[in-house]
Design a binder for these strands. Sequence first.
DNA 1: ACCTGAACACCGTTCAAGT
DNA 2: ACCTGAACACCGTTCAAGT
Lengths: 235, 235
Amino acid sequence: MAPSTRPAGNRRERPAKPALTRAGIVDTALRVMAAEGLDRVTMRRLAQELDTGAASLYVYVRNTAELHAAMLEELLGQIDLSPVTADGDWQDRLVQILTSYTAILFGHPGLAQSALVTRPNGPAYFGLVDGVLALLAAGGIPGGRAAWAVDLLLHLATSAAAEQGTREHAIDTQDEDEALLAALRDAPAGRFPHLAAIGAGELMSGGGAERLSWGFHVLINGVIQTPRPEPEATS
Amino acid sequence: MAPSTRPAGNRRERPAKPALTRAGIVDTALRVMAAEGLDRVTMRRLAQELDTGAASLYVYVRNTAELHAAMLEELLGQIDLSPVTADGDWQDRLVQILTSYTAILFGHPGLAQSALVTRPNGPAYFGLVDGVLALLAAGGIPGGRAAWAVDLLLHLATSAAAEQGTREHAIDTQDEDEALLAALRDAPAGRFPHLAAIGAGELMSGGGAERLSWGFHVLINGVIQTPRPEPEATS
DNA sequence: ACCTGAACACCGTTCAAGT
DNA sequence: ACCTGAACACCGTTCAAGT
């Protein structure tokens, strides 16, 4: 309203130093992550990128964990929730949105790791939870049971991504796998008879995607079959 | 065999500085963790405790992640595997050993967190896996399916502990819960109808133990019902 | 209210040099 | 082979002081 009192020349020229905002910080964090990985997303590095001091960021985010949660919340906006209202089998549609969620996390495994420990709680996450609940309701799962089931389903997706992510950015993944395989083979069959019977190969078999999809179906089938311990509220 | 060439006076007197060994490092790490939490178990702090320099530890452990894995492996020795060979329903016995595993992790939540990302691979862990496989075999689960199921079951236990652990050592757990509850209540019912229908209370209801036990049963029931995608190897 | 520089109190890991 | 001190390259967070 009143004419700007700032120094001349800032009318519409490129603002060399954009105002600090929470959204700006989160976007910068996502950009740095995309370019160099989550490890490099530190308060100090972000501050440098934003041409300020690390201390300034604490006006907008409480700490690093909250920053990570905000980054994930931002990405969660990309989830395709259209299967919620589409036609077709509810189980298939449920797996579709879980897969959409998983795809985002697989693209940003560091965030998946932090999501295991700090649950996101913004509107995008709520939208996902609401979508899963909608499909469980469509499948006739009582509300109380569904409330618990959401957690199980999202958790499986999150931890699969976190795990796969750790593996991929570790340089010595193959070494570790070989070590584990070797350890499994060396495990005395007398002491670990069932392990020996099944064999190391079988234990580690299957692509991540195949296993995850199987896991989703295990959970869905299990949820259908398993009432909550307490007398369930009727929807 | 040959008489010691070390300085006199070390025959059987208290060794002020015990020899560095991997086992000694791991034990010290466990002691520090018990006293002050996993955060304080740093290479530098451990070195100080062992009266040496941090660099010396790298002769025995590759890095911090490996140290954590070794600590967990040590604790896993305490798991009660007796239900594996006991009488009774295989599902009950399976839940018993999973609960025994969980109890250890709940006592050391920081380690649970690191186990989500770096799988343990020592004999104690193999013993646990073998026990779970034994009970799944007792339940008639085909070997190939059982191999995948172990992962799911142990993962659920691990992540429940990791999560609960984070909460407990966070000072602002209650603040966070209140914030989440408030956010859930504020979530517009029009936008998140199913969330609103179920209610925040329901979504977060249930003690950890109750929910975890339900989760185990969901998985077991699901595993019973859900064949692996490929034609399964016959036992 | 917002922003800053500087400080506090640390980290993991590597490496050349010693024994 | 094992052990060490010192160095490299960083961290998150707080706080008094400025605007």
